[in-house]
């Protein structure tokens, strides 16, 4: 009995340690966003005067709304383009082994190469295609990097179970396309949504391609936030406020991601 309680205590201490290591930086950012630059750097930490002035400053004195708009544009468009394509690629791979293992290796290796290796060739390609690469170039780049990743995730959602459901539908009189759209897609939907959310978040947070392929007017949030670190020093308090605002959509999406991922993974539970 005593050993069990001690055991539980140790477990909770370990978990608390992990939680703190994840939550503390966020709480720190929250604190900084509500104070001013001087208080922010003081040690030991102080709360000081609390106010929303940093948020007001971010929204009024910087291009925050444009960055936000650009990020929404890029992430939504990139996801909207890559998700259906990735779903079909995953389906073809799962059902017909299209491309076989060489294609699978290519998909995987595209995820293993450091992005910096690809970004310069891509920059060269885009500068020959358009006078000034910008938001469209960033979107296309995001489609290119997210599509294989999303397809890879979705392959497991078009498994043996959906195959036999499709066969049932085919015998019920459905064409291949009807079986795909009326049975396979709805059944795999939680997995597809989860892949879409993951792709959206990846695109939302992406920095390197957005920086290199972008110009001043196409700055996304990630690039815009980085620009707050100026040669004249880091505007730490407004940066913290902007970071929180940038995080908000991701924080809102995360619970959905979790829900759909779990739903997607337990699809096969009905036997």
């Amino acid at each position: 009995m005593k050993v069990a309680r001690l055991d539980g205590l140790v477990r909770h201490l370990i978990l608390a340690g992990f939680s703190a290591s994840i939550a503390l930086p966020l709480l720190w950012v929250l604190r900084v966003s509500l104070t001013d630059k001087l208080t922010a750097y003081r040690l030991p930490p102080e709360i000081g005067q609390i106010g929303l002035h940093n948020f007001v400053e971010v929204l009024t004195q910087y291009d925050f709304t444009r960055w936000f708009g650009n990020s929404v544009f890029v992430a939504v468009l990139a996801t909207a383009i890559s998700l259906p394509a990735a779903a079909m690629m995953a389906y073809a791979t799962a059902r017909y082994r299209t491309g076989g293992w060489p294609l699978m290796m290519m998909v995987l290796s595209s995820q293993m190469i450091p992005p910096i290796v690809l970004v310069l060739p891509m920059f060269l390609v885009f500068t020959t295609l358009m006078p000034v690469p910008g938001i469209i170039a960033i979107t296309i780049a995001h489609v290119a990097i997210n599509l294989p990743f999303m397809a890879w995730i979705m392959i497991s959602f078009f498994d043996e179970d959906t195959r036999s459901l499709e066969e049932a539908a085919r015998c019920d009189g459905a064409t291949r396309w009807q079986a795909f759209t009326r049975v396979t897609i709805p059944v795999a939907m939680p997995g597809i949504i989860a892949a879409g959310l993951l792709g959206f978040i990846l695109s939302w947070n992406e920095f390197l391609y957005a920086l290199i392929l972008g110009n001043h007017s196409s700055q996304t949030l990630a690039v815009g936030l980085a620009s707050l670190e100026t040669h004249a020093g880091v505007n730490i308090a407004p940066l913290a406020a902007a970071t929180l605002l940038a995080l908000a959509p991701v924080l809102i999406l995360l619970p959905f991601l979790q829900k759909y991922l779990i739903k997607g993974l337990s699809l096969g539970a009905l036997k």
Binding site: L165, V187, L267, L270
Partner: peptide, 8 residues
Amino acid sequence: FQNYALYP
């Protein structure tokens, strides 16, 4: 089918 394959 053996596994029934009902549309879930």
